[in-house]
């Protein structure tokens, strides 16, 4: 049975157990971060080769009511991942989908992908996820703790989650859990919604407008793009400027 995450942001307290546990399990070094010129709890400011997962913080105010949204951002493990389509155009086997879990995995081969392949992958990713370490050429992102899942464990971010905001399990069970929770949450937040549930394996439940969490909550561009379409896009202009990479 393939796997999925269900991430219920209404439960998240932004304790960042997920962000740190992910980093610890992967054995990543810390980045040098700062508050000067930044002034936000969101640190590191963005995903980077040493952070597969970051919690995004965003606040807004309507009347005198403040809302502070937390969004535990990571690869969505698309059912038909555009990054794979992009990578396949350069090298087969650099990006694979694990049969049993559905995890989208960047293999050792991905190291050999040229920089423009990475640029294409990131450009095609509807959620702006892949990152590349320019020093080593490694392209990476969340691997669904594939090693743990294979050993019968759950991914580290779901394991540590204090309030069960992050859940992991068989896809049908996660989708059922998401639907049930949505029905409950809708009573208090009529605009609550599940994001792109049919197309991705990391299903978020949000209550506020997507842009009040993060720019890439909703897919930017089509999800489930076919390989031929992806290839066709190789010559298309980039849909957005690249952000500076961290670390």
């Amino acid at each position: 049975m393939s796997k999925s995450f269900f991430i219920d942001v209404t439960r998240c307290t932004a304790c960042r157990g997920c962000q740190v546990a992910c980093k610890e399990w992967q054995g990543f070094q810390a980045n040098k971060t700062t508050q000067l010129g930044w002034g936000s709890h969101q640190n590191p400011p963005d995903l980077n080769p040493r952070n597969y997962k970051i919690v995004r913080f965003k606040e807004h105010k309507i009347g005198d009511r403040v809302t502070w949204n937390f969004f535990s951002d990571q690869c969505r493990h698309c059912i038909e991942p555009p990054c794979k389509d992009a990578a396949d155009g350069y090298m087969k086997g650099a990006v694979v989908i694990d049969e049993s879990t559905g995890a989208v995995i960047y293999t050792d081969k991905a190291k050999k992908l040229p920089k423009e392949a990475f640029e294409q992958m990131r450009n095609d990713c509807p959620y702006d996820i892949p990152r590349r370490d320019d020093a080593t050429g490694i392209i990476n992102k969340c691997d669904m703790c594939y090693d743990r899942v294979k050993a019968g464990l759950i991914p580290m971010c779901a394991k540590v989650c204090i309030t069960s905001a992050i859940n992991f399990g068989d896809r049908d069970k996660m989708l059922e859990m998401a639907q049930k929770r949505l029905a409950v949450v809708k009573k208090e937040y009529p605009d609550a919604q599940l994001i792109d549930a049919d197309d991705i394996r990391v299903v978020y439940l949000i209550t506020d407008k997507p842009e009040y969490y993060h720019d890439y909550v909703l897919a930017q561009g089509p999800v489930g793009i076919t390989r031929s379409a992806a290839l066709a896009k190789l010559t298309a202009p980039l849909k957005r400027p690249f952000k500076n990479l961290l670390g």
Binding site: C15, R16, G17, C18, Q19, V20, A21, E24, W25, M156, K159, V160, C161, I162
Partner: peptide, 25 residues
């Protein structure tokens, strides 16, 4: 070589906050 929350502790049931999750480091 690794640290991980203890699912048998009734208060945390295996969960950890950022600090607890960083124990290995």
């Amino acid at each position: 070589v690794s640290t991980e929350g203890d699912a048998d502790y009734p208060v945390s049931e295996g969960a950890l906050c950022a600090k607890g999750a960083a124990m290995l480091s």
